[in-house]
Structure formats: structure tokens, C-alpha cells
């Protein structure tokens, strides 16, 4: 390779800078209908990758999932299903997720929150409401 060492170093730095944009896009994945807000709740349990899926029989609907007192995922969905991937502490005692969802149309609606920890089976809870739901849902892996 020809050229001065200084020019070569500058070229390497420029190449790295050019890669920053695509790398950021790949590592900071956004879901179609919402934004994961927090990667982990408080505590000392091991963090696990968790896939969350929210289904509502009425659309559009607004939603927020809270863990450990902090919102971890919120958004609005025009389709019946929204999904995201997060990392959460998941102790053997299980986790409590608070689901708040609302929709403008007044009609009986089922809202289902499904949770799939990496390497485990799906756990799901369903709640019914007329204009909104607010529910604490407990998920615990089978021993």
C-alpha cells in the first residue's frame, strides 16, 4: 500500500465513521408499532432476551407496558398485533408486567399479552375491557 502513514490512518478513521450509521441502525432495532424504552428492570436476577407480543381485537389502540415501576414499551398500533424484543431480568419467582391499553371506540375488547423468553415456551394473559384495560400480569417460567 502506497502513501504516507498519516494519510492511511485518516482513511481508516473515515471508513470507520462511514460504518457508524449502518451499525447503529442494525443494533438499535425499532418495532413497527412501538418503542422499547428500557432494557432492564432493577434487581439482581439474570437478564433474558424476551419477545413481547400484544394483540387487541379493537384497533387502533394505545398501549404501555411497565416493569419495576418503569415503562419499558409503549406506542400506538393500527394493526391488531404489535411486537418488540427486550432484555429483562427474569428471576425464577417470575415477573409482574403492568399492561395499560386504551382505544377510542367503546366496545368490548380482548387484549392479550404474550411473552416468550429466549429458550422457553410462550406465556400469555388476556384481559377484557370496554374502553381501556389496566392490569398487573404475572409471568413465571415452569420449573
Amino acid at each position: 500500500m502506497r502513501g504516507s502513514p498519516l494519510v492511511r490512518a485518516v482513511l481508516v478513521v473515515l471508513a470507520l465513521l462511514a460504518l457508524l450509521g449502518p451499525l447503529r441502525t442494525l443494533t438499535n432495532r425499532r418495532t413497527e408499532a412501538g418503542v422499547p424504552l428500557q432494557q432492564a428492570g432493577p434487581g439482581s436476577a439474570v437478564k433474558k432476551k424476551i419477545h413481547l407480543e400484544l394483540t387487541s381485537t379493537t384497533v387502533p389502540f394505545k398501549y404501555q407496558i411497565t416493569s419495576g415501576g418503569e415503562p419499558i414499551w409503549r406506542g400506538q398500533s393500527n394493526s391488531t398485533t404489535a411486537a418488540t424484543d427486550l432484555e429483562l431480568e427474569f428471576p425464577p419467582e417470575g415477573i409482574d408486567l403492568v399492561l395499560d391499553a386504551s382505544w377510542s371506540e367503546q366496545k368490548p375488547t380482548a387484549v392479550r399479552l404474550a411473552l416468550i423468553p429466549q429458550g422457553s415456551g410462550m406465556m400469555a394473559r388476556t384481559v377484557w375491557g370496554t374502553t381501556s384495560v389496566s392490569e398487573v400480569m404475572t409471568f413465571q417460567e415452569e420449573k
Binding site: 415501576g69 417470575g94 409482574d96
Partner: peptide, 29 residues
């Protein structure tokens, strides 16, 4: 229920003066 959900389930260990909170323990884990 919402307030207790702020506390991770692995931290729900309650040391009390006398054994009076078994019902609370059952309801809120």
C-alpha cells in the same frame, strides 16, 4: 397490585415483628 408490581418478585421478602401478614403475602406474592 400496581404498587407491589414496582418491586421485583425476587425481592418480595417480608421480615415482620409477628406473623400477621400471611394473607397479604398470598395476595401479592
Amino acid at each position: 397490585k400496581r404498587k407491589v408490581a414496582e418491586l421485583p418478585r425476587d425481592k418480595r421478602k417480608l421480615v415482620t415483628s409477628h406473623d400477621a401478614f400471611q394473607c397479604l403475602a398470598r395476595d401479592y406474592g
